[in-house]
Design a protein around this nucleic acid. Structure first.
Lengths: 211, 211, 211, 211
DNA sequence: CATGAATGAGCATTCATTCAT
DNA sequence: TATGAATGAATGCTCATTCAT
């Protein structure tokens, strides 16, 4: 079936590939220099196409950015969505932290794109944040509060808990340069994230666990 | 006496005031839009002077930025410097967290300026980070490790501990829009930071305290 | 065949034409106002294109100037290069003077561009002058000295002889306004240069000829 | 009497000195960079005064230039004026050449200022050239023609003779960089001009002398 | 007289976007 | 689709000139 879809979209498939190529290039560039700091020339170069050709697929710089941001939001909310109200509380939260940390490791550019956006006042995603994100957080905060009320978790403000999880995990992507500099060059990527994982599990899960 | 001091710095005082005015305006703008995203027009507008007049005081956009960054680094390193090896470990760390949190509350633009800079690969401060900051962190990490070895603190990686403190506190400045949106508008500035303080003290100090 | 050559350089030909158009315009402007005294607006106007379009072909003002200067040097050294050691001495020198005079007549803008450059201390061509030009002059000076030693020419300092030839011929291009003003408007271009030719042949060749 | 004049111009004398200081500085700068290529800052620096102060004495950049040019013209015409119709022809012309060569040696900046002006089409002095200079040249050309008619000089076009004298002598000031480069660094200022003097006397006077 | 401060006009250059092919 | 060419609107910065003291 996916076969037939691909068949019937002959031109479209190529289009999709090119668009993907552009988005990857733009992600790289936007994450590194911010929206205004990035130029179409840089993106076109990174995407290995000419600037007019690039504009054939996305007619405005803004469009590329919007597309990236929109796609990012899905990825971004996914981990929290999977936090399971019926799971074992500490395990759930630990798993969430790990998922976020893996994202920081595997999608640092996305993380930086998001950070850039928020730093500038979230002009493009403020609605999504005040809407979808807030709703999701409200829901999951209730789940966590439920666990606390049941005595399964030490009690604390669940929203600030989420902030802390976001901050600490994304830090390894957003402040990467600083992290590397402070740890020194002898530490490889692997061990850096493993150490972080251990540290964060210890920090969050020991503190949350009811004894 | 302060009178005579002011007298003898006559012209200089005006210059200093104007320069300060410019720096404040630039801090606002740079923090919100990053270096490349900010224009001299924006800064001049914010400083309520003409662009050439602004350039009379700082002859290059870069100079303004550099001045801000240099000044920032002093402010930025100060709290960690005061971490006292002879103090009571948990108290010291709690105090550090509070200081950092106060800075996030009182100097959010500085925090965002710093975040912007790091996100873009720290082009202007990489040396300071690999030099002064790393040295300071190494020193304080040893202090913390000492406390852990003496059994005064639960043991963990002290550098990742610092990362976590930085991340969680600065988050309230850098991701301010998101924090506000998630918490809802009914929460005022005061309670937001008070809640954060309580949460972070709980998170870090309970976990660190040896029982 | 020239057809096929033109075909294979399709787009390039247009580019070359535009670039040529720009260079001609720039030559006019630079020769008249010097490098700093010339603006891209003037050049763009003279080339009948918009300023950004001009910058599409030469991305810096400096580049245009460099290109003109580089091309000029070739033209400039050519006449002296053809001075033939095996020719009849007085004839050779007379021919050289005539060639230089023709250049002053046919390429006055190039001459003025060169004069402008030298007047300002030759910032862009000092190397070529201390290198290529000096070497060429040394070589030809020896040729002339040879002729003098053989008694075929009255003896004099050959380098100062070259200076005198350069000065007197280029004068008709560089100081054109003054020459015209002094001679009065009734003298046409033709007769001005014919008179000059006669005068200079007389001056240099009578004096040089051994009797 | 000159004493009383100086007395009564108390302030004026200081003014004159400052103005002179400015003119010297401006001459240096204008000669090296042309009118448009020179900035008031450069001139103010060279004159060791502040830009507004400089503008107190000459309220426009143009004024300074005009003053220099006007003064230059007097100096410039002086040598030709002293060509004496009653003197010995060859001696007179030789003396003229020497005077011009001395000027090139002693006032190279004035020579370059003049050259710059003429190269740009003599916008500020075209009237003087078409008027005073042309009249003077006409007069002296007649003197020279008279000598030729009397058989005291070999006959040639007296105006082109003057051009040649101007060109060859001024060349040592205007094309100084090139002259030095071609002659090599081992030749000092003195010998350069002595060689030139000998060469030019030989060139012009041998050719003119009737045998 | 002297100078720090201020500014409008201009200038080289960049950049997103459009046009024509 | 793809691209070379073209352009208006910035953008950082310079500079002659003015203002105020």
């Amino acid at each position: 079936m996916s076969q037939s879809v691909e068949k019937q979209s002959g031109k479209t498939r190529i289009q999709r590939e090119k668009r993907e190529q552009i988005l990857q290039a733009a992600l790289e560039v936007f994450a590194a220099h911010g929206f205004r700091g990035s130029t179409l020339d840089q993106i076109a170069d990174a995407a290995k196409m000419s600037k007019p050709n690039l504009l054939y697929y996305y007619s405005r710089k803004e469009d590329i950015h919007q597309t990236l941001i929109a796609r990012l939001m899905d990825t971004w909310l996914a981990p929290l969505k999977t936090l399971n109200a019926n799971g074992e509380p500490v395990e759930e939260i630990c798993a969430y932290i790990n998922r976020k940390l893996e994202m920081a490791r595997d999608f640092p550019r996305e993380s930086r794109l998001f950070a850039n956006e928020i730093l500038q006042g979230a002009p493009h995603i403020i609605e999504m944040i005040e809407g979808e994100l807030k709703t999701l957080v409200d829901e999951k905060a209730k789940v966590i509060e439920g666990w606390m009320d049941e005595g399964q978790l030490n009690s604390c403000d669940p929203r600030h808990l989420l902030f802390a999880i976001w901050a600490t995990t994304q830090h390894y992507a957003d402040f990467d340069v600083q992290v590397r500099a402070v740890l020194g060059t002898d530490k490889g990527d692997e061990s850096r994230f493993e150490d972080a994982k251990e540290f964060l599990e210890n920090l969050f899960c020991k503190g949350l666990k009811v004894r």
